[in-house]
Every structure is written in C-alpha cells, then in structure tokens.
C-alpha cells in the first residue's frame, strides 16, 4: 500500500443487474475487492477509448446515455452501465425509498378476507406504519399498517365486505 488509498473515490457500477464496487485513485489505480489493477486510459475521441488493464489493451467505444449511464461496446459486446459514486448510490437508494414514502401508494389486501374495521376515512392524514384497517382472514384478525405517509385519497370497500387477494382497498397520496 502506498498511501494512495486515502484519495480513492469509490464507485458502484451496475451492469446487467450485477453490481461492481470499485475504487479509483487519482492516478487511475483501480481496486476491485482486494485486487489492485493498473489501468491507463487514452481518449481517441469522445466516444472511443483505448484502455490498458494489466497486460492487455482494449479498444472500446462508448455512448453517453444519461447523467450516470454509459453504453459501452467491447469486442462486439454491448453493456448498459450505470455508474455512481458510492455517495450518489446511497443518495439514489434513499431517493427511491423516499419516493416510496411520499408518492401515491395503493393499499392492497395481502390475502383474501373480510374487512372487519376501517380505522381511517377519506381525507385523513396518516403516517407510514400507522395502523389503518383490520382484515379478518382464516379466523385471524390482521392489522394492516400504512405503506406510505400522506392523505387517504379514496377507499373502495366498506366494513363488512370481503376482499380478494391483491384488490386495492385504499389509495394514499
């Protein structure tokens, strides 16, 4: 180790649903897992690169597809790559969860049953995790909690009605 470790930027690259975690130093030294790889990148044009990785040189063409997306072609193989710094990846995950929290959300019946009790009404403001209804199934009372925070937009069933599995009981916005 030569102390370059401290100035390394961590990246998460996603290709075909596979995630690669790698760190790159200022000088282009790449760390994947516990392997250090020497690389040297030469730009031929904005869309064509020559890259030395260890003992081999690869000619690669690329398309910029979005803020963190590159289409990369090597030897007639094409890869859709999503590249984020570790920080961006974390922010991205948070953002995804956040949108789950705040965007419109359906409350679905997880199992067929009898709608025993509705604890909220249209217009109520509710918080994620708040108990909203009781569904009786297989002689058991199941408490359903809200999957999102927001306002109850509509309710499609009333107490005493039976619901099928996956039917939407209410929507929250």
């Amino acid at each position: 180790m030569d102390g370059g470790h401290n100035c390394m930027t961590e990246f998460i690259v996603t290709i075909n649903n596979r995630k690669f975690e790698l760190s790159i130093s200022e000088e282009g030294k790449v760390l994947i897992g516990d392997r250090y790889i020497r690389t040297e990148l030469t730009e031929i044009t904005k869309n064509a690169y020559v890259i030395r990785i260890g003992d081999s040189v690869y000619e690669i063409s690329s398309n910029k597809l979005g803020a963190d997306k590159f289409g990369i072609t090597i030897d007639a193989c094409y890869f859709d790559t999503t590249v984020r710094t570790k920080l961006q990846e974390t922010a991205n995950e948070l953002q995804k969860n956040k949108s789950r929290l705040f965007h419109h959300s359906d409350v679905k019946a997880p199992m067929p049953g009898l709608l025993l009790k509705l604890k909220v009404k249209v217009g109520d403001e509710i918080k994620i995790g708040e108990s909203i209804l009781i569904l009786e199934a297989m002689k058991m009372e199941n408490e359903l909690r809200s999957p999102a925070s927001g306002i109850v937009k509509s309710i499609f069933f009333s107490e005493g009605q039976s619901v099928e599995k996956d039917s939407i009981i209410m929507t929250i916005e």
Binding site: I15, L22, I24, F70, I72, V83
Partner: peptide
C-alpha cells in the same frame, strides 16, 4: 468483459 466495462465506466465517470 463485464469487469472491463465496469472499470471503463468508473474511469469515465
């Protein structure tokens, strides 16, 4: 080639 693509992607970024 997946790993090579990943390395290039990170270097470009």
């Amino acid at each position: 080639y997946e790993e090579i693509a990943a390395i290039l992607g990170a270097l470009l970024k």
